[in-house]
């Protein structure tokens, strides 16, 4: 098929940026969205243009690197998939596709569709860890974990840190990310020691990075490729209230 691709081009963080429109030729419906961009880039190079910069790594929906707002939705129109797992059969010949980067003050554009998500790393540094004795692996059943807690922790730990929650939020809030990163530790016995400090430190780090505030639109959950539930946000709010009122 042939597609019209409207894509955000921006040389660097300082430049203002603009939309450019290209025609992508010979796109097969079996291609993934990123393969379509690869083909388009080949065509751009052949025409003497600079290829479009975009983030990607695993291309199998597990690393969280791909970060495209496709036709107004982070990761595109499908529920529960990353952009790299979106396929071109979702589009029709002649369609116009608009591609923008994540837009948030805390995620400045590096180039074209690539944004700097190191704000997330700094939030994790603030408390997204547990202190354990390193050395040989302990016997698996030394610390018993109830089945429901283990399941819940796994649900939260499905977060791949892509930032679609921030991209989708009308306020560019990072609450779902922080909530998931707090919950997957606080669900487990190993996460209890630093729990109160973690909740406060990670929330403080989030505010410090310039993300917006959650006003409960739940766009984050709708956009999340791992469908992390907003119940974790309610729990973060509860834990935060408790940690600040009973230190």
């Amino acid at each position: 098929m042939k597609l019209i691709v409207r894509v955000w081009r921006q040389q660097n963080a300082q430049e203002k940026g603009r939309f450019e429109t290209y025609e992508a030729q010979d796109i097969s419906s079996d291609m993934s969205f990123l393969e379509m961009l690869d083909v388009l880039n080949e065509q751009l190079i052949a025409q003497g243009h600079e290829p479009i910069a975009f983030d990607h790594d695993c291309r199998e929906g597990i690393c969280g690197m791909c970060s495209l707002v496709i036709n107004g939705r982070p990761h595109g129109p499908d529920k529960g998939v990353t952009a790299c797992q979106l396929h071109m059969r979702r589009f029709k010949d002649g369609d116009t596709i608009t591609i923008e980067p994540w837009r948030a003050r805390a995620f400045p554009v590096v180039k074209d569709l690539v944004v700097d998500r190191s704000a997330f790393d700094r939030i994790i540094e603030a408390g997204g860890y547990v202190s354990v004795k390193t050395g040989s692996a302990p016997e698996a059943n030394t610390v018993p974990v109830p089945k429901p807690a283990a399941e819940d922790a796994m649900d939260a730990a499905a977060c791949i840190g892509c930032g679609a929650c921030v991209a989708a939020c009308p306020n560019a809030s990072a609450m779902l990310f922080v909530a998931a990163k707090v919950a997957h530790l606080s669900d487990l016995p190993q996460g209890q020691v630093e729990h109160k400090a973690r909740v406060q430190d990670m929330v403080q780090a989030m505010d410090h990075e310039g993300f917006g505030n959650c006003t409960n639109h739940y766009e984050c959950m709708a956009a999340c490729p791992k469908q992390i539930h907003v119940k974790f946000i309610a729990r973060l709010n509860r834990d935060y209230l408790r940690a600040t009122t009973h230190p």
Binding site: F19, N71, G72, E100, A104, R105, N171, H217, Y218, E219
Partner: peptide, 19 residues
């Protein structure tokens, strides 16, 4: 004010899905 500031560059196309 904080929420406006958190997204200085708005999307050209933004399709809400949940709110």
């Amino acid at each position: 004010i904080e929420n406006r500031r958190a997204r200085p560059q708005p999307y050209q196309q933004y399709v809400p899905a949940a709110t």
